[in-house]
């Protein structure tokens, strides 16, 4: 029962970045196309799963006073590993994401999950938590990226959708479009939650 809860909570109840309202920086900055959203989401998921696993495995040996420092070292190591692997195997994507890959280190979701979940739960459960939140983050970023790319450029994952006569709504791929798109989605989600009688803002 507990396992199922942990597996599913990242997909709606704690869906990042909408419900946690953490990790907004990459969600606004790199979602100008679906491909970038997906790439960023997958990179963050990898870091989340492994940082949760290692931190949970070490939770009894890390002294309380240096826990944040230890978490940051572990997370930073994983991020640099991701950065190097991306450069070696997905070079064009790593060029597009640029500075935002190293910035995963300071992504609040990852440190948040480490502190709130992995530091007090067993390894397997923490791994599941990382997977769940990571997949939620990937889906959200791909969704925001898709909406912005379809409206703003008339393409989806680089494929042209509407033919040459379509006049793209260029505003959506610019920075203000990110705020608009994210805000509207967040509003719709809160409205839907309220209608279902869920608490619409996290306590």
């Amino acid at each position: 029962m507990k396992f199922k809860q942990v597996l599913l909570h990242g997909l709606w109840k704690d869906l990042p970045p909408f419900r946690l309202v953490l990790g907004l920086c990459p969600a606004l900055a790199i979602t100008s196309s679906a491909e970038k959203g997906l790439g960023m989401g997958l990179a963050a998921t990898f870091v989340l799963i492994f940082s949760n696993t290692f931190i949970s495995a070490l939770r009894k040996s890390i002294p309380d006073k240096v826990r944040i420092a230890s978490y940051i070292v572990i997370i930073a190591t994983l991020v640099v590993l991701v950065e190097m692997s991306m450069k070696a195997f997905f070079f064009p994507l790593s060029q597009q994401l640029g500075i935002y890959i190293p910035l995963i280190v300071v992504n609040c979701i990852i440190l948040g999950r480490a502190e709130a979940f992995a530091s007090r739960n067993p390894v397997f459960l923490s791994m599941t938590d990382g997977l769940s939140v990571g997949i939620g983050f990937t889906i959200s970023l791909t969704l925001v990226g898709s909406i912005r790319e379809i409206l703003g450029a008339g393409t989806w994952f680089g494929m042209s959708l509407f033919g040459a006569s379509f006049e793209p709504f260029g505003f959506m791929v610019e920075a203000p479009g990110a705020f608009l798109c994210l805000g509207l989605l967040l509003g719709l989600m809160n409205a839907y939650s309220r209608k279902r009688g869920e608490m619409f803002i996290q306590s």
Binding site: S61, P63, V66, A69, V73, V80, L81
Partner: peptide
């Protein structure tokens, strides 16, 4: 504190 943090950093450096 010193030993644990150094160990973590050492392993991280080796992996990188």
């Amino acid at each position: 504190l010193v030993v644990v943090l150094s160990l973590i950093c050492g392993v991280a450096a080796a992996a990188l």
